[in-house]
Amino acid sequence: MRSAFEWVDALPSSIALRESLNAYPTLLTTHVVSMCLFAGLIAFWDMRLVGLTLRKVPVSNIPTRLFPWALTGYGINLITGGLLLYSQPMRYYDNFYFWAKMALMAVAGFNMLWFHYATYKSVQAWDQGREIPMSARLAGVVSLVLWAGVVVTGRMMAYAGLMPEWWNNLNIGA
């Protein structure tokens, strides 16, 4: 794994991106704005499942009408995030919050797929009414917590000095 990060780190295009004055601010700003589009819409979808808001909107309306926009935001987020990683791979290699963010994203993606292919199949039964099944509510709560965790760990990546002690003891960067 480390050698792959080092290999990317030494690529001329990675170095060029790293040394560019404008690339980092542009990518990071676009990353934040696209996060607002993606996470903002997903948060309200999750809160609809939990029953906290938009209770008069049929549940099935949200994936069909809002997900294309949310996925556009997610796509931009992935591209800008990927380029940020590509430009400074060794900065993130030993960063606890980077790996925590990746793990949380993977679990959130799994939760989304599980919900889509299991719970959401019966949506017609609870689309209009207010009684949302417990499994859907649970998926909403789990999704809210996981995406909040992604946002938090993403912000914490800037704090290299605040890694957990046990992580530092692993000496991954050495």
């Binding site: 607002c36 589009l37 996470a39 903002g40 948060a43 809002l66 946002v151």
Partner: peptide
């Protein structure tokens, strides 16, 4: 808070 604000405004 920014994410919540963005979602509420965007919808």
């Amino acid at each position: 808070a920014l994410v919540a604000f963005a979602g509420a405004v965007l919808v």
